[in-house]
Deep mutational scan, measured.
Amino acid sequence: NQASVVANQLIPINTALALVMMRSEVVTPVGIPAEDIPRLVSMQVNRAVPLGTTLMPDMVKGYA
């Protein structure tokens, strides 16, 4: 199964993503693939992302 990017902490709106904020986990539904974690670093989220939430492409500015 494909691992997705999951929030490792609460990520406030407009926060630039850092490695420590993300982990990979096999979840349903599938979100952003875990292999894209390096690409996500320094991109901003466009909403608050609670701990344990799967990151979806529409949550990250400039990802989709």
Results as ranks from 00 to 15, higher is better:
31 G>P: 01
23 R>H: 05
54 T>R: 03
47 R>T: 13
27 V>C: 05
7 A>R: 01
47 R>D: 06
25 E>Q: 07
59 M>T: 05
57 P>F: 06
40 L>N: 00
40 L>W: 01
49 V>R: 01
28 T>Y: 14
57 P>R: 09
41 V>G: 03
29 P>W: 03
15 T>H: 08
47 R>K: 09
31 G>M: 02
1 N>A: 15
16 A>M: 12
9 Q>F: 06
25 E>T: 08
48 A>G: 07
61 K>V: 13
38 P>L: 13
39 R>Q: 07
32 I>H: 01
51 L>W: 13
55 L>K: 01
44 Q>N: 11
23 R>S: 07
28 T>C: 12
27 V>G: 03
27 V>H: 03
54 T>L: 04
27 V>L: 05
39 R>P: 01
61 K>N: 15
62 G>L: 10
19 L>N: 06
52 G>I: 03
61 K>G: 09
2 Q>A: 13
36 D>Q: 11
17 L>H: 00
33 P>M: 08
57 P>T: 05
63 Y>P: 03
3 A>W: 11
60 V>T: 02
6 V>W: 00
43 M>R: 12
8 N>C: 05
45 V>Q: 01
60 V>Y: 00
48 A>R: 11
45 V>M: 05
34 A>Q: 05
37 I>W: 03
46 N>A: 12
37 I>D: 02
31 G>W: 03
11 I>D: 01
1 N>F: 15
41 V>P: 01
36 D>I: 06
13 I>S: 14
47 R>I: 15
37 I>Y: 02
34 A>K: 07
1 N>I: 14
20 V>T: 15
64 A>M: 10
41 V>L: 15
42 S>M: 08
45 V>P: 02
47 R>W: 06
11 I>Y: 00
40 L>C: 03
54 T>I: 11
33 P>A: 11
31 G>N: 01
15 T>N: 04
51 L>K: 10
6 V>G: 01
53 T>K: 08
51 L>C: 08
2 Q>P: 15
17 L>S: 00
55 L>C: 03
63 Y>N: 04
30 V>G: 07
36 D>N: 13
62 G>Y: 14
54 T>H: 02
13 I>N: 15
17 L>P: 03
53 T>I: 10
59 M>F: 13
17 L>G: 03
45 V>I: 06
48 A>C: 06
19 L>P: 09
35 E>W: 07
10 L>C: 15
4 S>A: 03
34 A>S: 14
5 V>E: 00
21 M>Y: 08
10 L>N: 13
15 T>M: 09
3 A>I: 09
16 A>E: 12
12 P>M: 13
48 A>F: 10
34 A>W: 07
64 A>S: 13
3 A>R: 07
